[in-house]
Each structure stands twice: as C-alpha cells, then as structure tokens.
Write a protein that binds this DNA or RNA. Structure first.
Lengths: 122, 122
DNA sequence: GCTATAATTAACTAAGTAGTTAATTAACTA
DNA sequence: TAGTTAATTAACTACTTAGTTAATTATAGC
C-alpha cells in the first residue's frame, strides 16, 4: 500500500490519465466519452483501469446513472499535491531569477529598437 | 521513452525520493549524506538508483568533487509540474469554498467565545 | 604501491503496471 | 423476453520498477 501523495503523483504520471483530467476539467463525462479519444490506441478495459487508478488516488469521483458512470474531477487530491510542491517554489523562482540575471548580462535592457548590435552598447 | 511531465511525476511518486528532495532543499549533499537516513531500510546501490531517477527527471543535478558526488536540487522540472497543476487550482479552491460554505451552515460565524452552544444562536 | 572511502555497475529476482481478448453484469428498449 | 448499449471482471502476457549481493571504478592519503 502506497502513501497518499505517492498514489497521487503516480496517477498523474501518465499522459492518458492527465488527458482524462483535462477533459473532466471541462465538465462531467461518462466512461465512453472519456474513452473516445483513445479507442484507436487502446481498448475499453484499459480505459476502465486508468479510471480506476484516478479514482483510487481520489482525483476523480465516479457515480452511477442507469448504465452510465458519470465521472467528475475532485480537487482535494490535487490540492495535496500542489501544497507539497509549494514548498519548492523558492527553487524554481530562484532559478528563473538566475536566468533573468544571466540574460541581462548577454542582452542589455532597453537596447533601443530590436536587439541587433545591442552588445555594442556594453 | 516517457514524456517529460510523466517522468517528473513518476520521480515524485516515491517517499524516499521526496525525502531526498526535502534534504536537498536545505542545501547540497553527497550521495552518502542522502543515503544515511535510509541505510537501515535499503542498500547503497538502491540509493544510487533513486538518485538516477531524480537526475533523469531533471529534478536534481549531480556534479563531481574528488570521490564525492555533490547533488543539488533543480527548480525547473518542479516548475513544469507546478505549472501543469496550476490549471486545476480552480477545482481545489472551489471544493474548499464548498466546504467553507457547508461549515457556515453547521457552525455560525462569530459565535462569541468558543463554539459551545453556538447553534442556539441560529 | 597499498589501503580506505565514495559511489557505481552488473546480474539477478520479485512485485507491480499497462495492456490484451473473451466473458459477464446491468440497465434500457422494442 | 430478446437485443443493445455501457461498463466491468477475469485471466493472461510483456515490460518496468525496486530491491538485492558481489564486483568494480576512482580518488585520497600514508
């Protein structure tokens, strides 16, 4: 049994599942709606399994309505993952700052129109 | 070959690797520094493999200094994952709002000191 | 050159994951 | 009740992952 965060991240570590979440972010959808874009590449049971992974990770909720299974996205699990990432924000902002600082040494700010011959001004 | 985002998320889907990132968020560390908390549970080659996963995902950078391999955290890959998550923020904020709204129906706002007997005021 | 330390590589195993096809369940519809 | 649609379950295969132990590489220091 995996911890919750590992389960969330490993559910997100698949492009098919992320595409399903993207579709669900536009509104509820049945299994067959979600399956449609992938049926050339994989079978319906494969889709069922992907949805089960998302459901176990708490990323979606599946309900029943006659023979359909409307699914909807569930924000909480995503929030937990996002909160975990948040503690590292300083690292990507700092590396952005370094990139920005570097770019300033290569191309001076406000070099007039365009950047052609900009270095001449240094 | 996996896409970049899948590689990032699957690297994050392991508590040992997340703990290593947590350690690296306090500053650079060698392989053996990173290994120390885990050597009761797993061998050094297992650690090497975890670090390789993090490195391939671009989450850390490993350099060389004599026989040591100082590692440092690399913000960019984390930023890409965080940027992906950002598009779903509305879903977790909305579910937080629903929770908040619900709580207001159960416990009224400003119920005086403490919440004991608060419902009497409804 | 010998020895200790740091880390990796090789070869292997056990368990988990992603997919398949065939069969089954469940609900609606004529 | 027979047929159709929606989805799942079962049983299986191929591949990947996470770990192991034993051997190896590379550097430092005496």
């Amino acid at each position: 049994m995996q911890d919750t965060l590992s389960q969330t991240f490993s559910a997100l570590a698949d492009p098919t599942r992320r595409a399903m979440l993207a579709k669900l972010s536009k509104g509820e959808a049945n299994v067959s709606d979600l399956a449609k874009p992938f049926l050339k590449e994989m079978s319906l049971p494969a889709i069922t399994k992907h949805l089960k992974v998302l459901e176990k990770a708490g990323l979606i909720t599946k309900t029943r309505s006659a023979q359909w299974r409307p699914c909807k996205i569930n924000g909480i699990a995503l929030k937990n993952a996002a909160d975990w990432m948040e503690q590292y924000r300083v690292f990507w902002e700092e590396s952005f700052d370094r990139l920005e600082a570097y770019l300033k040494t290569v191309v001076p700010r406000k070099p007039g129109k365009g950047t052609k011959n900009a270095r001449k001004k240094i």
